[in-house]
């Protein structure tokens, strides 16, 4: 556990060399430091996501969370997120743009003083799906963690929801080029347990390196300590699985 850290808002080049904002924390240490790119969930780069960034710094990682809605600004992060969400996911966070922003964030972390050159990605909810895709699409990364990423699989048409059904990203699984850790709650509806079964089946078929931890008594977003879905026992264990995984692949 590192007692000291430096926390700052930074700018770095993301997709198509556009400079976007990120929230960065790094430990005060002379030792070599691995990096983590943290992908926020749909509400945006909120206080809980920033806590996650600082959690990684406290465990000896330089972490940065790219503000994936940055281009919809300027303005307060919550207003920017509200404007982006109103326009829909496809326009607010197109996959190519997010992948470019992740690659830029990874390069920025790798350029920090003391970086050991290895960088992982972790994402929550929509960020979990993006982390899965990044494992297939951003070869500069070394490891990926998908926390309850929704719509990794194509979703069936739902007359109750407007617009086309999500196409999913599972078709990119053959391109996965790094180990993947998955964290899921068995009470989740997206991804539901049978969907996680299917993701496991596809990754196994393609011979990919992955490890899934699936928790009873937990649903969606059970790490979110400010919301009712928080599950203390499962979350504590899940975080230890994350740090074990990164300790193996990033140090």
């Amino acid at each position: 556990m590192k007692e000291g850290m430096i926390v700052e808002v930074v700018g770095f080049e993301g997709y198509e060399d556009t400079v976007i904002e990120g929230y960065l924390a790094r430990p005060v240490t002379a030792g070599p430091t691995p990096g983590v790119v943290v992908l926020h969930h749909a509400p945006g780069l909120d206080p809980w996501c920033k806590e996650v960034v600082r959690r990684f710094a406290s465990r000896g990682y330089t972490a940065v969370a790219p503000h994936l809605y940055h281009r919809r600004g300027p303005g307060h992060w919550a207003d920017v997120a509200a404007a982006a969400r109103a326009e829909g996911l496809a326009k607010a966070m197109p996959n190519d743009q997010v992948m470019g922003d992740i690659a830029g964030a990874a390069a920025y972390v790798r350029a920090q003083p003391g970086a050991n050159g290895r960088v992982g990605v972790i994402g929550f909810c929509s960020g979990g799906r993006q982390a899965f895709l990044a494992a297939c699409d951003v070869p500069s990364l070394d490891a990926a963690v998908d926390c309850w990423g929704g719509s990794v699989l194509p979703q069936p048409p739902d007359p109750g929801r407007p617009g086309p059904a999500p196409k999913g990203v599972i078709h990119r699984a053959p391109d996965m080029a790094m180990p993947l850790l998955g964290i899921f709650g068995n009470d989740d509806l997206n991804p539901a347990p049978e969907q996680v079964d299917e993701i496991e089946r596809v990754l196994t078929k393609h011979g990919k390196s992955f490890e899934f931890f699936r928790y009873d008594g937990a649903g969606h977003a059970f790490f979110a300590s400010d919301k009712p879905n928080y599950r203390q026992e499962q979350a504590v264990d899940g975080w230890e699985r994350v740090f074990e995984f990164y300790n193996e692949h990033l140090r």
């Binding site: 509400p43 919550a78 109103a86 969606h220």
Partner: peptide, 14 residues
């Protein structure tokens, strides 16, 4: 007015 039912930013609900 943009109206939706989704994860909130501040309200302490899922």
């Amino acid at each position: 007015a943009n109206v939706f039912y989704d994860h909130p930013v501040s309200a302490p609900f899922d």
